[in-house]
């Protein structure tokens, strides 16, 4: 009896002592997603938290945005951290609740964020975002052939079709707009509904594997995939390029100047548009963004997106 009791006490003590060691990842800094956003908060006025909609593979985002954070930290002299988010909606929500200071939004999510946070600042966009394009892609085994105009999209009726994220501008909003122009309703696809793969990379992988006959992705991701060989031309081909529309942009919190000092948001904007391919770090960032350089942008550029968003019901 007594022996068993002592044994139990020793065991309990041991487990208490060993637990912290047994869970090495469990320290306040290692608690991914949530902790960085909040842990900094108390002393936090000074940390710039940047994020981005997760439109591509997590590994690519994890390569790109820490670079951006480091470069901005160097340029601005304030600590900058990258906070990953799990989907487009979460990025918008976290921006509204003030958990993120500077976010790389798509056209639609940017408009959603600004509507939810009046006064939010549109800071910059890439050269390619002025007239961005989506590419409709198809599995070579699906029998789909390249099409000429928007009317040709009717070929997609009855096919298994996937968008990217529900809130993607180039992977859902504008494609849906063009599909409607071509007379295709969402219920016309096989299964009565399109899929939502979640990101452009996934769309390419799913269409290439044949899980879907066709899909639609953003042109920049498509080009990169062709370039680095992840998209196999023998299995997946482009069938149509949409007309241009404005897309991605950097949006900042309205209170950046109060928190980081007068003129901070101007400085931030200046830093982003100063990136050039002549600087090795900045060149790496720009090439991961698939751009030559960033330029100033303003809310007025996204009127068309807002209109289409309202039409489709993603903005209310």
């Amino acid at each position: 009896m007594a022996i068993r009791e002592r044994w139990a006490a020793v065991l309990a003590g041991l487990s208490l002592v060993l637990l912290p060691a047994a869970l090495p990842g469990l320290n306040p800094n290692g608690l991914n997603l949530l902790a960085p956003a909040r842990a900094e908060q108390p002393q936090a006025k000074k940390v710039l938290r940047i994020s981005a909609i997760p439109d591509q593979k997590a590994e690519k985002l994890n390569r790109l945005y820490p670079l951006v954070a480091a470069e901005l930290e160097r340029q601005l002299g304030v600590p900058v951290v990258y906070v990953p988010v799990v989907d487009y909606t979460a990025a918008v929500t976290a921006f509204r609740t003030g958990d993120l200071d500077l976010v790389w939004f798509g056209g639609l999510t940017g408009v959603q964020a600004r509507l939810q946070k009046p006064g939010a600042l549109v800071l910059a966009q890439r050269d390619i975002d002025v007239a961005f394009h989506s590419i409709f892609i198809a599995n070579t085994g699906s029998g789909l052939k390249p099409i000429r105009g928007v009317k040709g999209l009717a070929e997609l009726k009855g096919k298994r079709f996937t968008f990217g994220s529900e809130s993607s501008t180039s992977g859902r909003l504008m494609p849906q707009y063009f599909l409607a122009k071509g007379g295709v309703k969402l219920s016309d696809f096989a299964g009565g509904a399109p899929g939502f793969s979640g990101s452009h990379d996934t769309t390419i992988a799913l269409v290439q594997s044949g899980a879907y006959d066709a899909g639609v992705v953003n042109e920049q991701v498509w080009r990169t995939s062709l370039h680095d060989g992840r998209a196999n031309r023998a299995k997946v081909v482009a069938i149509w390029r949409t007309p241009g529309y404005p897309d991605y942009h950097w949006i900042g919190q309205p209170n950046l100047d109060q928190r980081f000092g007068k003129g901070f948001s101007r400085k931030l904007q200046g830093a982003i548009i100063s990136w050039r391919t002549t600087n090795p770090q900045q060149k790496q960032i720009l090439s991961l963004f698939g751009a030559q350089q960033f330029s100033k942008s303003s809310a007025a550029n996204y009127k068309q997106i807002e209109q289409v968003g309202r039409q489709i019901g993603k903005i209310r």
């Binding site: 949530l34 590994e59 989907d87 979460a90 996934t202």
Partner: peptide
């Protein structure tokens, strides 16, 4: 899986990037 942190988030991200 729906973004509230922890292993579910990682699982979802891995599956989405087909890793």
């Amino acid at each position: 899986v729906f973004g509230l942190g922890g292993l579910g988030t990682e699982l979802k991200l891995c599956l989405q990037s087909l890793q």
